[in-house]
Design a protein around this nucleic acid. Structure first.
Lengths: 222, 222
DNA sequence: CTAGTCCAAATAATCGATTTTTTATAGAAA
DNA sequence: TTTCTATAAAAAATCGATTATTTGGACTAG
């Protein structure tokens, strides 16, 4: 008998955690909204205990705010916070990229090229926005992955999720988008050329342009 | 009638979360140990639901590891990870200190002096190790508090907890300890003098010396 | 012996119901 | 009108019990 692929241990808690995390990052909840737990229970078809465990994890992660005796809320969007997040992304991703370029091996180069290629394909297919988001996240993750610091990678991931709460709400300008897409390719070139200095500068610029886009998420409210 | 101080909303979950966080940082559990949930339930006298919610928060925070269907474990201590944590502390606390010095106002100066004074008092009273830890944490928190970035402060706090898992296990050398204590005062002097460069250098040295101490937590095992 | 299989005990995860606290509303007093 | 109090409805937190999964032998075949 062959070895059967064991159905990986997906508990109700881990499933609802992943699902809610996605939905929060994608802005399916209104910022500032208070979560109606029993409604969520119905909508997602999970029990109360797994749901509450997931909500507790999400608030420790920073995608929810918990107030004792009064449940869970979706954090508000604030310009100050977006500034902070973008600023931290520059600092931490810059640091990580620098280390990744110094330490990344040949296998990394291959993965990076692959990730960039997949992303580029998705750039040109505007109908699969969902998939693009996944590939975009994966590209940035790959870029910094060999930096050597698990904690740095953890923080960066957290910041990405926070940043995307803003960016994915914002209306996209095709012209800006074209520039951002092109920068992904340039980042690969500089990484492969091991040009730390230029790569950091470009990453900085990339984040700052994305930040300008993300700022648009406030447009409708002002 | 006067306004009565409302007993703050301490839920069973928030209480057991705080308590376990303390106990984990203080090394009351063996690294690598698997947590026996029903035993914890007895020991701490809390129900299963609040306990599990707290454990979920703690694993999202990084003080526990959760594996689906097989509960919660205390993370192992590894030299590589201590290196990473110390390294990140240098990078992030250095950055935060620099910003704090540039932005801290007169009120900050006062709080910093106060925090340093309280800590110094505790330095000389070796019987209150418990209190010293609290004041030490508070001192470092105060030092970087006006850096302007909530996310940076959040990451630093997380790293402190991780670092302390190692440091508080390590045997203390009175001579090294004397130097570290003195550095707290020097950090205040440099901060008040707004000497960014020197303060960063000293913070770096302070963390590196603490790292050397923390390394001692492996001594008994090698 | 060494794997491999089966089962029972232990443990993790989940459910349904109960208790506690907050929130909203209506009436009373200032 | 405004502020306070009482209370009912809603929601959050917690409990006790049930279900599902893993773990650790004991047994069996190779």
């Amino acid at each position: 008998m062959g070895i059967f692929e064991r159905k990986e241990g997906v508990t109700a808690t881990s499933w609802i955690y992943d699902t809610l995390r996605q939905d929060l990052v994608n802005g399916r909840f209104t910022a500032g909204e208070k979560l109606a737990i029993s409604a969520l229970k119905q909508q997602y078809g999970v029990g109360l205990s797994p749901l509450r465990e997931a909500l507790n994890r999400l608030s420790a992660y920073g995608l929810l705010i918990q107030e004792n005796q009064r449940g869970f809320r979706v954090p508000r969007l604030a310009r100050d916070e977006l500034d902070d997040i973008a600023d931290m992304r520059c600092a931490l991703e810059g640091m990580a990229l620098e280390r990744a370029i110094q330490r990344g091996d040949a296998e990394w180069e291959s993965e990076l090229l692959a990730a960039a290629h997949r992303l580029k394909r998705a750039d040109e297919a505007p109908e699969m926005a969902e998939a693009w988001e996944r590939l975009h996240t994966q590209f940035h993750r790959t870029l910094v992955s060999p930096c050597g610091s698990p904690w740095l990678l953890r923080f960066i991931e957290q910041l990405h999720d926070q940043f995307d709460r803003y960016r994915r709400l914002a209306p996209g300008d095709p012209e800006v988008r074209r520039v951002l897409d092109a920068q992904h390719g340039e980042l690969v070139d500089l990484a492969l050329a091991r040009d730390v200095k230029a790569a950091r500068a470009l990453m900085d610029d990339h984040i700052k342009r994305s930040y300008e886009v993300a700022l648009g998420s406030f447009a409708r409210k002002l």
